[in-house]
């Protein structure tokens, strides 16, 4: 058990180290960051000053070891123009993203699983087919397209602006983007929970429970659904892991001031430290979500615990 946990943690560490290194490499090989940061017609002098501020005038390996050293000391660098630490920029924006991502996940989970269960219990009839049709639509509909449609219909049809309200995170403001963001995952949760429940319902132990005289409702609630929920944990883990990265497009469309927006602007302004930290944070979220799923499986599935 300890071995299992240690090896999982070690893998997580290696993954993060690789991510950090790749980000370092990609940023430096997609054009000179200092030149990209200075205004387009800036004199060489200004570009050089930016390079110095960023430490880009040093040899690559020195930059890399400094970078790693700083990360291990918990120093993730500063945005050159504002002098703010990338971590504080990120933390400022995190609540908005968590609010949006969390709510959309909640919507996706409750609506998706409910629809999936309803569809599974009405397998083959009109209800099932409409749920499946909806989930294909929801899954196939690109976020930005649906978001734009929502915004434009709201404005032109109902004279109502559905975008973000600036720095204030109102619950009315979060609903349209959360619904948009949740739509696609609602589709996948519906499909996934439907097929998982159908598979479980047909497992021998459900039939055996029936043979023991256990009622249909109880078989469903106490036997089929808990087992059907196990594979969903993986999906929820993926959703959690993608919480930050997944909302980039939706945040742009709805002007929702979250990490996604920060990432886009940091890439545009070549705010290296912030880009590096956000990518690292996204990777870390993914890695920790995976760890969480692994440990969650330990808790909910006794079969895994035994291995």
């Amino acid at each position: 058990m300890t071995g299992f946990i240690l090896s999982k943690l070690f893998r997580a560490f290696i993954t993060l180290l690789l991510t950090v290194s790749l980000v370092f490499i990609f940023i430096r090989f997609s054009g000179d960051p200092a030149a990209a940061m200075a205004p387009p017609d800036a004199p060489q002098e200004v570009i050089d000053q930016y390079a110095e501020k960023l430490g880009l005038d040093k040899p690559l390996w020195v930059q890399y070891t400094n970078y790693l050293g700083q990360i291990f000391r918990g120093d993730f660098g500063y945005s050159v123009d504002s002098g703010r630490s990338s971590v504080s920029l990120f933390l400022d924006r995190l609540p908005a993203t968590l609010y949006l991502g969390g709510l959309s996940l909640l919507i996706a989970l409750t609506v998706g699983i409910t629809l999936g269960t309803v569809a599974a219990l009405n397998r083959g009839n009109v209800l099932d087919r409409s749920v499946m049709a909806f989930s294909v639509f929801a899954f196939a509909m690109p976020n930005f397209l649906f978001g734009l449609a929502v915004i434009l219909i709201g404005a032109l049809g109902f004279q109502t602006y559905l975008g973000g309200q600036g720095a204030t995170l109102s619950w009315i403001g979060v609903l349209p983007p959360a619904l948009t963001l949740g739509l696609a995952s609602t589709g996948s949760y519906a499909r996934f929970s439907r097929s998982s429940l159908l598979e479980t319902i047909n497992k021998p132990f459900v039939l055996a429970a029936e043979a023991r005289g256990i009622s249909r409702t109880r078989r469903l609630v106490f036997h089929a659904m808990p087992n059907a929920a196990i594979p969903l944990v993986t999906l929820i883990g993926l959703s959690l892991g993608g919480l930050i990265a997944g909302s980039v497009v939706t945040e742009q469309v709805f002007a929702w001031p979250g990490v996604g927006q920060l990432l886009v602007r940091s890439v545009a302004t070549r705010d290296i430290a912030t880009v590096q930290f956000i990518v690292l944070a996204i990777a870390a979220t993914m890695v920790f979500a995976n760890l969480l799923v692994d440990f969650l499986y330990l808790i909910i599935d006794p079969r895994i615990r035994a291995q």
Binding site: L148, L152, G154, T160, Y161, Q252, V253, P257, Q261, R265
Partner: peptide, 21 residues
């Protein structure tokens, strides 16, 4: 004066049309 960041043009347009901006 409130300067609000709205990266997507269509959203800026929607806000203007809806009277928000």
């Amino acid at each position: 004066l409130t300067y609000r960041i709205v990266p997507e043009f269509s959203t800026r347009y929607a806000g203007l049309a809806a009277g928000e901006f």
